[in-house]
Design a binder for these strands. Structure first.
Length: 970
DNA sequence: GCAAGGACGTA
DNA sequence: GTACGTCCTTGCA
């Protein structure tokens, strides 16, 4: 990997001073810097050939806002004059130019370009790559590294000098008199007049270098300042020690900017003519257009100038609304066209992949080390590989590895059998002949699977990551076709065969053809190797095909950021959480089970006595017949299948009317529910190897972006009733440890306040008020002091109703009031918070117009039947589309917190294991005694996790508690 | 042995 | 009124 980072802002300034002014012919817009910028980008790609040719590239700009350095030193860059007038309109154009050349343009509020450059440079170096920073800015010289892993390149034309001037350790030494690692110490002493870094007055570069070379570093120098012979110099250093320290902070580049795009997003792609020529034509850069047309073998006349950037005819510039609307339409069309080119590319790739024949005979069986080495070589040549592990089961915490499937390109595939066994002798270890020893094979695969320069592609890769982790392999980096599909199309396709049937017209060999089904099912270990190779080779091949066709859709459909920030980095985090599991106390559950069983039996006997006959209390059908048939109770309603409804709401009502049978059944149902789903079921999930319960998270099955948990579901452990809560006491910390539960307070209402921009709600959250009481007070004019609990309860129901896409029908059911009264409440709410109605109307409009709504982070939530001809279905979609941005944005916020959590804890020096996620709550396990330090850090990460992508207009609040069990920690 | 329906646990 | 997963019964293969 070779990453090229262009310091965009510094280049624009230098180009401004170095180049003669140039104005666009049609409207005199100054464009000289933009032209210089385009020439540079173009020349860079021309000049850097062979070994110097970059594989990854990005242009980094300063964002015109304050940075953390302003907080350290108020006068930082205070001497810098505002940019010249003619430069200002060129700033956004240089960003457009970057994108026109199909290069990522990166800038972040609160960070200087130099910090972002430092961060990416270190990321690439740590990944074993080479970095070139295109800049001559001395502030970046601290990043240069001796072995050439990080170099700088000065490309500003200077008379009498070669066009490309490399800056390595020697050049830095010439400039500062020290090696790059000591540059910040020298700068701390000599300061910088341009950036207004104070330094120590009277000390220049020469003196500074001499001092640092003598004493080693700044702190040693300041500590031993007394030893300096020259009296004036000695006194200056002693007097200005603090200034020097501040200066060092100012010049030290942050290498930990929370960048949104990973290195893989910076991979170089061919210039897209559909993006390039509309831009160049709008700028009226005829010479560059011709040159690039020749090189790209494209006809520039096939594209129109980008109307959003092109010179405007004079009549369209006035306050004419019609003209404005037209200009807006033109802009939209233009961005649509750029997108159209990407979409066409994605469609083209799809067609090409489909055309590649599927040939099971081509799949190789890898039987020895030499053959495996050849495949690994091919993988290195390709830079990526589709991987699929075959195992003995569906639970990756218990299944054993049987074989590994590989594919380096659509159409090829290989199967590496490792532990196939003869069915006759399962226990005695009848290992089938012709397989590599597993240890040898894994030793060869491990370096490749862990190599940061090789992209591993899987389908539902979290499963494979968990298996491989148990064999000591930490697979990274990864791409996941399931997550690509989920990002692009939502949870529409859930399995590999659904995806491949839809996109490739071929569902693949069904697994049951190999292992059978039902009682006679065998494990993959017993499948014969030739059949396994046809299946496994195809699996890897199909995964590779899916990746090839899905990945280009990300940029075409503007979903790269969602995938790169919310999906891809989360998978390994979840894999680790699943691997850790949580400790569950068998004895507590068994005691509870006994207690519940006894009480349930008593209620069962009572119910049957009251019914006058024995019947199955678990059968809603039998219960309904007894209540509304035999006993002839009034008020029965039927379900859609004609059965009597016997839900808890119905039985509650009957119990209220004085029907003791209803009460007995309700009690029985609660107790048997707790037994069947929790106290009896959970112990069977305790893993023998780890002694813990390992849930499995589904990252790609919820419409709104939430996670779901299964086998067992640990996201629905009871909490509302006293008996139910007892189950939580069985979730315990291991010996010497303690559990921490950290949950977002009212996150969905806060998100609603932000999205719908409801000032009254935002103020209430800002002031830390009881939000439901505040709502009640606003709606009913009742003071919060001494408010009856019933009033607050109604307001709370309305607040939740709003989140769920309220209807008078639903609210009346919830509150047990009339439809009309519920409708009045809703009307009052809308009058008091008009932004809510606007928000709801806007979501209804969008879902009908676009078929989707979005979260604040850009996740799309699709509703294919938004225009259904069934009114009930349409109403349902309307409510869901109102709910989705709220629930989904909250889900994205906690996803971001989870992605940031592990590195942030590590940085803070805190050892805490993240175990569980329950939608707005994270559970951790830490060493006893560490909880007081860990909790504020965890809460801080969660509260700020939206940033820097989104600056919320309401504060987020997280409550954290520590205890030995989950009940007390919650 | 499997799918659908009802019921109910969570946020 | 939103979003899930699991257990149990029932009815059909």
């Amino acid at each position: 990997m070779h990453l090229l980072l262009v310091d965009g802002s510094s280049y624009v300034f230098r180009a401004f001073h170095a180049l003669p002014p140039l104005n666009r012919k049609s409207d005199n817009l100054p464009v000289g810097c933009v032209q210089g910028f385009c020439n540079m980008l173009f020349k860079l790609t021309e000049d850097l050939k062979g070994d110097d040719q970059p594989t990854h590239m990005a242009v980094i700009f300063d964002h015109s806002a304050k940075t953390f350095r302003d907080d350290i030193y108020a006068d930082y860059k205070a001497h810098r004059p505002p940019p010249p007038e003619e430069l200002v309109p060129q700033f956004p154009l240089t960003r457009s130019a970057t994108r026109a050349f199909s290069i990522p343009s990166i800038e972040m509020e609160g960070w200087e370009a130099d910090d972002i450059i430092a961060t990416y440079a270190c990321m690439a170096r740590d990944a074993g790559g080479k970095v070139t920073i295109v800049s001559s800015d001395k502030d970046l010289m601290q990043l240069v590294e001796p072995n050439g892993s990080i170099r700088m390149l000065d490309t500003i034309p200077r008379p009498g000098q070669p066009p490309l001037r490399w800056i390595g350790v020697d050049e830095v030494f010439t400039k500062f008199g020290v090696t790059p690692d000591k540059v910040i110490d020298v700068q701390a002493l000599c300061g910088d007049a341009v950036d207004n870094v104070p330094g120590v007055p009277g000390i220049g570069v020469k003196t500074a270098a001499e001092l640092i070379n003598t004493y080693g570093d700044l702190e040693t120098l300041l500590a031993r300042a007394e030893e300096i012979k020259q009296p004036a110099r000695r006194q200056k250093l002693i007097d200005n020690a603090e200034l020097a320290r501040i200066s060092k902070q100012l010049v030290t580049l942050s290498r930990e900017v929370p960048v949104e795009l990973g290195l893989d997003a910076l991979v170089r792609v061919p210039i897209e003519p559909g993006a390039l020529f509309p831009f160049l034509k709008a700028m009226e850069f005829n010479t560059i257009t011709k040159r690039l047309a020749g090189i790209l073998e494209a006809d520039p006349d096939a594209w129109e100038a980008d109307p959003a950037l092109a010179a405007k005819p004079v009549e369209a510039m006035g306050f004419d609304n019609a003209a404005k609307a037209e200009a807006r339409a033109a802009r939209l069309e233009a961005s649509g066209r750029a997108e159209a080119a990407l979409v066409a590319h994605a469609a083209d790739v799809h067609e090409r992949v489909k055309a590649i024949p599927l040939d099971h005979a081509r799949y190789e069986i890898i039987r020895d080390a030499e053959q495996l080495r050849k495949w690994i070589e091919a993988i290195y040549a390709a830079g990526h590989v589709a991987v699929d592990v075959e195992t003995t089961g569906l639970d990756n915490q218990t299944a054993d590895l049987v074989g590994v499937c590989l594919s380096t390109a659509p159409g090829n595939g290989a199967y590496l059998p490792l532990d196939h066994r003869t069915g006759a002798d399962l226990l005695g270890g009848g290992r089938v002949e012709g397989q590599m020893p597993m240890a040898d094979a894994l030793a060869l695969l491990k370096p490749m699977l862990e190599d940061r320069s090789i992209l591993k592609i899987g389908h539902n890769f979290k499963y494979d990551l968990g298996i491989l982790a148990r064999y000591g392999i930490v697979t990274a980096p990864i791409d996941d076709t399931l997550l690509l599909s989920y990002t692009l199309d939502g949870p529409r396709f859930n399995t590999m065969s659904e995806l491949t049937s839809h996109w490739l017209g071929h569902g693949g060999i069904p697994i049951k053809d190999l292992i059978g089904t039902g009682k006679s099912q065998k494990t993959f270990a017993e499948v014969d190797i030739e059949a396994a190779a046809r299946y496994g080779g195809e699996d890897a091949d199909l995964t590779m095909r899916l990746w090839t066709l899905l990945k280009p859709r990300l940029p075409a459909e503007n979903m790269s950021v969602v995938y790169e920030t919310l999906e891809r980095p989360l998978a390994p985090v979840l894999a680790r959480m699943e691997g850790r599991g949580i400790s569950v106390d068998r004895q507590i559950l068994s005691r509870l089970s006994g207690d519940f069983a006894q009480r349930a039996a008593a209620f069962e006997a009572e119910a049957q006595a009251l019914a006058g006959q024995p019947f199955n209390l678990g059968s809603p059908k039998q219960l309904g017949d007894i209540l509304f048939g035999v006993m002839g109770l009034p008020g029965g309603t039927k379900t859609k299948t004609g059965q009597w409804a016997t839900g808890a709401d119905v039985l509650d009502e009957l119990a209220l009317q004085g029907v003791p049978l209803a009460k007995a059944v309700l009690e029985w149902r609660q107790l048997t529910k707790l037994m069947g789903t929790y106290t009896d079921a959970l112990p069977s999930y305790i893993n023998e190897r780890t002694g813990r319960v390992h849930t499995s998270y589904s990252q790609a099955s919820v419409l709104t972006g939430r996670l779901s948990s299964n086998d067992p579901n640990l996201q629905n452990i009871p909490v509302r009733t006293e008996d139910g809560r007892k189950i939580r006491t069985a979730f315990v910390a291991s010996p010497g440890k303690i559990l921490i539960s950290a949950d977002y307070s009212q996150i969905e209402l806060r998100v609603l306040a932000h999205i719908a921009d409801i000032q009254a709600l935002k103020d209430a959250f800002e002031e830390g008020l009881d939000i439901h009481a505040m709502t009640a007070s606003e709606m009913f004019g009742v003071p919060v002091e001494g408010m009856p609990s019933e009033v607050r309860r109604r307001a709370k129901a309305i607040n939740f109703g709003i989140i769920y896409g309220i209807s008078a029908f639903g609210l009346s059911n919830q509150l047990g009031i009339g439809r009309a009264e519920a409708g009045d409440y809703i009307e009052t709410y809308f009058k008091r918070f008009p932004g809510i109605r606007d928000y709801m109307d806007e979501m209804r409009r969008r879902v009908k117009a676009d078929g989707f709504v979005e979260t604040i982070f850009g996740r799309k939530v699709q509703f294919p039947n938004a225009n259904s001809k069934h009114p009930a279905e349409r109403a349902f979609v309307e409510r869901a589309s109102i709910n989705a941005p709220i629930q989904g944005s909250a889900a994205d916020i906690i996803r971001r917190a989870m992605v940031k959590m592990e590195p942030a804890l590590k940085k803070a020096g805190i050892e805490a294991d993240m175990l569980l996620q329950v939608h707005d709550e994270l559970i951790f396990e830490v060493d006893k005694g560490a909880e007081d330090k860990a909790m504020p850090v965890i809460a801080g990460i969660m509260e700020s996790s939206a940033e820097p992508a989104v600056r919320l207009s309401v504060p987020l609040k997280v409550d954290a508690h520590a205890a030995h069990n989950w009940d007390e920690a919650h």
